[in-house]
Design a protein around this nucleic acid. Structure first.
Length: 269
DNA sequence: AAGGAGTCCAACCGCCACAAG
DNA sequence: CCTTGTGGCGGTTGGACTCCT
């Protein structure tokens, strides 16, 4: 059965004894035969009761292992291939809201597993944070995500869409903005989605303003609180400390943004 | 060509929540 | 209430693969 697997080591012959746990259950990479057995069983009987899957099929795998293999690899609705720009955008946005709630994030990205998203985050995003000497869980990094990574992704999406007939006018950023907003603010999302972005909250806190709808509306009416770029007077002009460490939203200015963008271009994030 | 370093990702592990008995 | 079984989740690991020197 060819399911288009891209995994490695689907046939294990040598060292087979290393793959058998003390309870007689197999461990390690799945063989094509095991995959086929599990696939046929779940296709026929549906998901759930994973321990009974192992019992009824004769697979020497734990229920947990069967469940994981199905969810992360055999499920027919899985998408294959690289994470797209739009998916990256969603991951960044959703992670900024929910943190490491991988399964919750995965539910909003059709065809992608929590494992895939988690791997993407750890290998790509955390690497960036490490290079920038920035804690991935810090407010600073969240600021960077919203202030630089997301705009950069949106620009990339805009550039790629500009090649298609759908977005024939490459200068029309509004269309892309709308497209991205649709991606990140769909009404189908559940009510736990924050009405304001963490970026906005952060921008408020950096000024000493408490966020409230009244405050927000007043400032918006005055036209001086558009979003991230709105930086109240008197804040530092530096975005980096002496050690090359990124220092956060209160330090945003043109120079710090240029430095960060240059770094990202070099890294091709 | 070789081998060391870095990357990617499938799979495992431990913990937790929840339901049933 | 406990205990046990089960499924789900996030963190971590290990090995194949790729890149770089």
């Amino acid at each position: 059965m060819d399911l288009g697997f891209r995994g490695y080591g689907s046939e294990v012959i040598d060292g087979e004894e290393d793959l058998v746990a003390v309870d007689g259950m197999r461990k390690g990479p799945w063989t094509d035969e095991e995959d086929s057995t599990l696939f046929q069983y779940v296709s026929l009987h549906g998901e759930g009761r994973w321990n009974s899957v192992a019992v009824n099929t004769g697979l020497k795998r734990t229920g947990k292992s069967c469940r994981l293999r199905w969810l992360n690899y055999l499920r027919p609705d899985l998408r294959r291939g690289n994470i797209t720009l739009e998916e990256q955008l969603l991951i960044l946005e959703l992670h900024s809201r929910w943190g490491n709630r991988w399964s919750k994030i995965a539910k909003h990205i059709p065809g992608r597993t929590d494992n895939e998203i988690k791997n993407y985050w750890r290998t790509r995003v955390q690497k960036q944070a490490k290079h920038l000497k920035c804690d991935v869980n810090s407010q600073q990094f969240r600021d960077m995500v919203h202030g630089v990574f997301i705009p950069r992704l949106m620009e990339k999406i805009r550039a790629s869409k500009a090649d298609s007939a759908e977005y024939s006018d490459p200068d029309d950023i509004t269309k892309i903005q709308t497209s991205c907003n649709e991606l990140t603010c769909e009404s189908s999302w559940n009510s736990q989605v924050s009405p304001i972005s963490s970026l906005t909250e952060c921008a408020y806190s950096s000024t000493g303003y408490e966020y409230s709808e009244d405050n927000h509306n007043t400032l918006a009416e005055q036209g001086n609180w558009p979003e991230f770029e709105a930086r109240p007077p008197g804040l530092s002009q530096r975005g980096w400390d002496e050690g090359g460490r990124f220092t956060g939203v209160q330090e945003w200015n043109e120079e710090s943004l240029r430095m960060l963008r240059r770094h990202l271009l070099e890294e091709d994030f």
